[in-house]
Design a protein around this nucleic acid. Structure first.
Length: 996
RNA sequence: GCCCAGGUGGCGGAAUUGGUAGACGCGCUGGAUUCAAAAUCCAGUUUCGCAAGGAGUGCGGGUUCGAUUCCCGCCCUGGGUACCA
């Protein structure tokens, strides 16, 4: 009986679904294990072979953990709010909900085909009102909280208010934008609006006018991580800075904990680095420079932030950002014109231009001076757009000897460069290393840089002209989007002040709109749903006083960004049906955080940061008992496409009898493609002369032209073009010429210059999978052709999980053959009964099996699934060779392989006489080292003539035993040449040191 | 520029703490089986050499009895990030 994967796989998929085999139990004596995949955005294109890579790996691991006796939670869902569905809606009028649901059906169908062990009863969709109800609820919690730096956690805003009532904002250490101080008295006299304005500066979710990345083409704002090189991540549209009133998240409050928390998670160093860089912690101090009274108002001080207070005696000028608030006042009359011109010019520069002209040094002297706090010298004030208004204090103290940009600036404008480093030459460039000694610096002279830094801060603090400070590059996250297809805010406005809609009225359900574009008067798309906005408020808010003005909406019309729903979804899986809580305490205390998270590293600065932030917040508020969401993470590499290329000769036919008449004037020869060999010969120089030198190619080309019957009397080959071909036309780089001719109308009459053996070989190129490059491979066709088990094993076999790698189906036969070999081990007769031996197990069989168990277990623990597949192949090859037909051996092997190839394993399990479905929770085999005993002391490996050599000895053997056997061995005698060893050292592994 | 990862046959890639480099698979070559093909099976396949034997894990050095593995310098590829003071 042949291995009929189609029948088998269909049968078991149905069995698993009917019996809910993988439904996770909420209460169990077993230890829990939570394996999670990053849930997909259900795009219209469906899954390609890259998507399942991580899912297969996590599925293998989840199945392995079940076999190891864990209660495994392995859910799946959809991140179903997003831009593409909305843009599709704008184009076609189709409701995003409709297209999203269709796409989800397709995804589900494709996922099901691969045989994942997901617990679908827990599925979540971020765009379901029953889900985003809780996203809205979490938003309210954030609004009602502030961050207390003393306790290092988020606390209720009501506590902050009662503190304000008692003693104003003295003795409050908060993460806040509030700069003024007020007393309890002040607070009581503030109007409601004034109070709220202050509270907004403390809330973790707050409204603020902020400079945002505005993308005109998309009509929305973007978060920093959604902007790449000055253009939008989606679509690549230009992004500009715009001041807008937006909801934001005070993620800065968690900057420090987001860094320190990385120490307790098991992630790769590279992704931790990405996060550390993104948060961008820098430790230094602030320092005040008084403005020189002769040139400006002496009351003004310029505060700078520096990480190098040790270099303070090297300061020769200060640079302010062009937008710095003091610039206008401190500019002297004679410099006014030039300075204003400069400010204008830099404000017109887009973010992109600024980035493009990094090497361009520009700036203006504004005419006035500051006083050096230690030397009392005058230091010139400059403006320059290399200083950013939004980082630090918007002003820097320039130390040209210690900072390359300051050095360049000083050189360019011919400003003094003071050297304050001992024995360092700074004539060619700045010295920015942090080792060495400081010189010519008063109380810092002679100190090591580290010491000097400490001392400088002490001095600055004691003089009360600054203090030690830590700055973060991380900006607060903009949380408003001018979009339709996202979560509505649970926010209404009363007298212009934002208020939360009571949680009992949630969810605020997304309305139907006729038009998904912004309204003519510039409101976001939800502005098209006037009635919805009014009704929601009137029906939910008691005694609400609404501003009776038709143009102002009482409800927030922005929606939340894509990362809102994905920041907490892993919690919802634990209790997805709960209508009363986002997750019950009982469930979250049992399942805790995700033990293994699998997904791409491209989310390093987005999703992974935001979900850590929300987790820490929910922890602070006592809703959950842990503050890191993902304990261990594996980042699977991207699967790249392998495009196929054919090479087209671009040539002109010339008719000398009618001068200048060429192909372009009507003589058309056939489209000619040349096989890869000829292309490679011409490749180094694709200029006509080189092509014409290739005699063999030219001869074939001429024969071809002759055959085509076109009239010409000369020709000129101009160049060779690479043409992308649909990969379905190619098998092992050999082109199916007939299929190719039918592929596109213009190639119907194409001619081919072939290899010597008559085939046409295509070239290839590794690049991103894309429809337009004809290199997209969907899993569907492979599942049909080879089966899900083969696909699963093949995707793992391709290479290390974490590496980016090209997709290539060349080797899939090998995996397919392997599964058939495995099937054949069972010696099925016509009736499908396995012909196996019971009871007798050969030593060789045992050794093969246990070697396999040992290696495969190790591979699983190391997430090295590619070597896992290889080890199965070795095992099956050996068992085939040994003609193993032992029931006991095969039963163990089937369990072992079931995480990788679950369908065939289920079938074979039943064929062995076991109850259907029980394999999913069977006992994972453990290896017995006794069976791994090798033939001891078979051969010495190397010998340096004097002291050491390598010997293979049996696992677990006593070292005394080894010593005596080494001495007794004939090879030892050969090397020792009659001498007695002084000492013998047995090193774990396979090394024996014999000292003569 | 800075940070991180990587560089091994014709190809994807193994080599877990320094110990027979190239496992396993693809491809290729030869053979068996077959009327024939597919499928299957057997043998070979880093390179130079008829062979004995050399050389060999991006390049140059080093440590070591022994280095793909550790150290120093360089080159290349991929990823992250960027006037962040």
């Amino acid at each position: 009986m042949e291995y009929n994967f189609q029948e088998i796989e269909q049968k078991w998929r149905k069995f698993w679904a009917d019996n809910q085999t993988f439904k996770a139990k909420d209460a169990s004596d077993k230890e829990k294990y939570y394996v999670l995949d990053m849930f997909p955005y259900p795009s219209g294109a469906g899954l390609h072979v890259g998507h399942p890579l991580g899912y297969i790996a996590s599925d293998i691991y989840a199945r392995y953990k079940r076999l190891k006796g864990f209660n495994v939670l392995h859910p799946m869902g959809y991140d179903s709010f997003g831009l593409p569905a909305e843009q599709y809606a704008i184009q076609t009028g189709q409701h995003p909900d409709t297209t999203t649901k269709e796409n989800i059906l397709r995804y589900r169908d494709q996922l099901d085909q691969i045989g994942f062990s997901f617990d679908w009863s827990r599925e979540v969709r971020t765009s379901d009102a029953s889900y985003y109800k809780w996203t809205q609820w979490i938003f309210i919690q954030l609004f009602e909280s502030w961050y207390n730096n003393k306790t290092q956690k988020a606390e209720a805003i009501s506590e902050l208010i009662s503190h304000f009532e008692k003693e104003g904002n003295a003795n409050i250490e908060a993460c806040s934008d509030c700069e003024k101080s007020f007393s309890a008295e002040d607070w009581k006299q503030f109007s409601e609006a004034e109070k709220e304005t202050i509270l907004q500066e403390y809330r973790l979710a707050f409204l603020a006018d902020s400079w945002v990345n505005w993308c005109p083409a998309l009509g929305t704002v973007l978060a920093n991580d959604e902007v790449i090189n000055g253009v939008s991540e989606r679509g690549g549209h230009p992004v500009e800075q715009k001041l807008m009133r937006q909801w934001s998240m005070r993620i800065k409050a968690y900057a420090e904990r987001l860094i320190t928390g990385l120490e307790k998670v098991d992630w790769t160093e590279s992704i931790k680095d990405i996060q550390r860089n993104w948060i961008g912690k820098s430790v230094g101090c602030s320092l005040e420079f008084k403005v020189d009274a002769s040139t400006g108002s002496a009351n003004h001080k310029i505060e700078v932030f520096t990480t190098r207070p040790d270099t303070v005696f090297g300061v020769t000028f200060l640079v302010l950002a062009p937008e710095h608030p003091l610039v206008a006042e401190l500019t002297t009359a004679d410099k006014k014109e030039a300075v204003e011109k400069y400010i204008k010019a830099s404000s017109l520069k887009t973010e992109r231009d600024r980035q493009a002209n990094v090497k361009n040094i520009s700036g203006e002297f504004i005419g006035s001076y500051a006083i050096h706090p230690f030397t009392g010298e005058k230091v010139a004030l400059w403006i320059g757009d290399y200083v950013l208004a939004s980082y630090g204090t918007g002003a820097v103290m320039a130390v040209p000897c210690g900072d390359q940009r300051d050095w360049d600036f000083a050189k360019h404008f011919d400003i003094e460069i003071k050297n304050i480093f001992e024995n360092i030459d700074i004539s060619e460039q700045a010295y920015s290393e942090k080792v060495g000694k400081i010189a010519d610096s008063d109380f810092l002279s002679g100190l090591e840089i580290k010491e000097a830094t400490k001392k400088a801060i002490e001095k600055i603090e004691s003089l009360n002209i600054g203090k030690g400070k830590t700055n973060y590059r991380l900006r607060d996250a903009v949380f408003s989007r001018q979009r339709y297809w996202g979560e509505p805010f649970p926010v209404y406005y009363q007298n212009g002040l934002p208020k939360m809609i009571d949680a009992k009225h949630l969810p605020i359900v997304l309305p139907e709109v006729k038009n998904y574009l912004p309204t003519p008067d510039g409101q976001p798309p939800l502005g098209n749903a006037k009635e919805w906005a009014w009704n929601n408020v009137e029906s939910r808010i008691e005694n609400v006083e609404l501003i009776d003005n038709q143009t102002i909406f009482p409800l927030e019309l922005n929606t939340m960004p894509g990362w809102a729903g994905s920041s907490w979804y892993f919690l919802r899986y634990m209790d997805s049906q709960n209508e009363n809580e986002f997750v019950s305490k009982k469930q979250v205390d049992y399942w805790k955080n995700v033990d293994l998270y699998v997904g791409g590293s491209e989310h390093g600065t987005g999703h992974l940061l935001y979900s850590r932030f929300w987790t820490k917040f929910l922890f602070d508020k006592g809703f959950i008992g842990f503050d890191e969401p993902f304990k261990k993470m594996i980042n699977q590499g991207m699967i790249l496409g392998r495009s196929s290329l054919a090479y087209r000769l671009n040539y002109a036919l010339i008719d000398h009898s009618t001068p200048e008449k060429t192909t372009f004037d009507g003589i058309s020869g056939p489209t000619v493609f040349i096989t890869k060999t000829y292309y490679d010969q011409c490749k180094p120089n694709i200029i006509n002369a080189e092509i014409h030198k290739n005699k063999a190619l030219i001869k074939k080309f001429e024969i071809l032209l002759e055959k085509s019957g076109v009239y010409y009397n000369d020709y000129m080959i101009d160049s060779i073009s690479e043409i992308h071909l649909d990969i379905s036309l190619i098998d092992n780089d050999i082109l199916n010429i007939e299929a190719f001719k039918n592929w596109r109308e213009d190639y119907k009459d194409a001619e081919f210059i072939l290899e010597e053996d008559g085939t046409f070989i295509c070239g290839s190129l590794i690049e991103k999978m894309s429809k337009s490059l004809y290199n997209v491979q969907t899993p569907d066709e492979l599942v049909t052709k080879f089966g899900a088990d083969t696909l699963r094993m093949y995707e793992m076999f391709l290479g290390p999980l974490e590496q980016a790698k090209p997709w290539d189906t060349k080797g899939i036969n090998g995996v397919s053959n392997f599964l058939r070999k495995l099937w054949r081990l069972f010696n099925f007769d016509e009736q499908g009964n396995a012909q196996l031996n019971q009871g007798e197990v050969s030593k060789d069989n045992l050794k093969t099996l246990h070697k396999c168990i040992q290696k495969v277990t190790d591979d699983l623990n190391r997430f090295s699934f590619n070597t896992g597949v290889s080890n199965f192949m070795i095992c099956v090859n050996e068992l085939t060779e040994q003609k193993c037909a032992s029931k006991e051996i095969l039963e163990q092997l089937v369990i072992l392989i079931s995480p990788y190839a679950p369908h065939i394993a289920e079938e074979l399990w039943v064929k062995l006489g076991n109850e259907a479905g029980t394999i999913s929770y069977a006992q994972f085999p453990s290896f017995n080292p006794e069976y791994l005993v090798s033939d001891a002391f078979s051969y010495p490996i190397s010998f340096n003539g004097k002291v050491r050599f390598n010997i293979e000895f049996p696992v677990g053997m006593d070292s005394k035993e080894i010593e005596s056997q080494v001495l007794a061995h004939e090879n030892t005698a050969k090397y020792l040449e009659g001498k007695t060893p002084k000492k013998m050292i047995v090193v774990p592994g396979r090394i024996v040191n014999v000292v003569v």
